[in-house]
Nucleic acid binder design. Structure first.
Lengths: 180, 180
DNA sequence: ACCTGAACACCGTTCAAGT
DNA sequence: ACCTGAACACCGTTCAAGT
């Protein structure tokens, strides 16, 4: 029974989750799937687009229960993204690539933008600021872990930065209509 | 006349500047310097630490004329970092690695933190937010460029996010003493 | 002290040829 | 339609041996 596109992506996510980006190679992936390296190129165009799809899959399990308050939902979503990406080694690099190449690569970015749109005059810039903070914090933490450096206080630092960003967004002039 | 450590870093920066991270390989670097690959390992420990030093060099030319106002200086510094990193392909990745592994890898980060300290109650979190925004924006733009995607409006988006971050920092309770 | 030569264990990608 | 086999042009790092 032939290999499917989904099996390839699943195996790639598994490899990233357990061994990090340095071990997520096309050859290693082929070995894991018990095919020749060339076989993968029937299912994916190249490594770059495979990584974008891996990023989508990592973010795909995120859901938050709505609270009625946009600020609360944004905070929950930001924390959920951090929680999903942090345990995946090099996850921030992969997700950042996905966000840059296609801001709609995952529904969470769209969801975040909609929520921000209920508060900020410029949802684009505010969403970017939030995403950059989340992925930047996680990236710092993961880079430090990879280099065997301490990461104490990272969660508190993340929260503090998040509150700063939220304060900036809520302090900004509102959009014309709250529920149009 | 033997190779020096500085010549190795200089050649690495040159390679990054002209061809990007994919072409900044130890073997290519050795070829450029007309030595065998193994010779490099007399001057640097490994590729990772070489990259951190490259990041330091990229940021080393940044200077701003002080204006008296911390907010203005922070804004100038943030824009100067963006201006220094943007023309270097994959520069944001390399600089982010340097910032994560050693926040004092470049004096600019220390300078930024001092300026932020004159305004914000928690200079650490506020500086992180700024650095993440700068490197995140530049990273998005560079990733898009690499994938031949349009980058129109990137400068304005950067400025907008910067003003949001600055607003958050200045709106925060001041430190106990302005000039202690 | 500084470098060469040679090796080790890998990469991503392509493509004719097979089934 | 889907995969193998084999090749092409590369990687980072180590280390005995040379000068």
């Amino acid at each position: 029974m032939a290999l499917t596109h989904d099996e390839v992506i699943d195996a790639a996510v598994e490899l990233l989750r357990t061994h990090g980006l340095a071990d997520l190679t096309m050859r290693r992936l082929a070995r894991e799937l018990q095919v020749q390296p060339g076989a993968l190129y029937w299912h994916v165009d190249n490594k770059q687009t495979l990584l974008v799809q891996v990023a989508g899959r990592v973010l795909s399990e995120i859901t938050i229960r709505g609270s009625g308050s946009p600020v609360t939902d944004i905070r929950r979503l930001a924390k959920a993204i951090r929680a999903a990406v942090l345990p995946v080694p090099d996850g921030s690099d992969v997700v950042a690539l996905g966000y840059a190449l296609d801001p709609d690569s995952s529904p969470v970015f769209g969801q975040l933008r909609r929520l921000v749109g209920e508060l900020a005059a410029d949802p684009g810039a505010a969403t970017d600021l939030l995403v950059h903070h989340v992925l930047g914090s996680v990236g710092d933490e993961q880079n430090r872990r990879l280099a065997d450096l301490p990461t104490r206080g990272a969660a508190a630092a993340f929260d503090h930065g998040l509150e700063l960003a939220l304060a900036a967004i809520t302090a900004t002039p509102q959009p014309r209509s709250a529920h149009g």
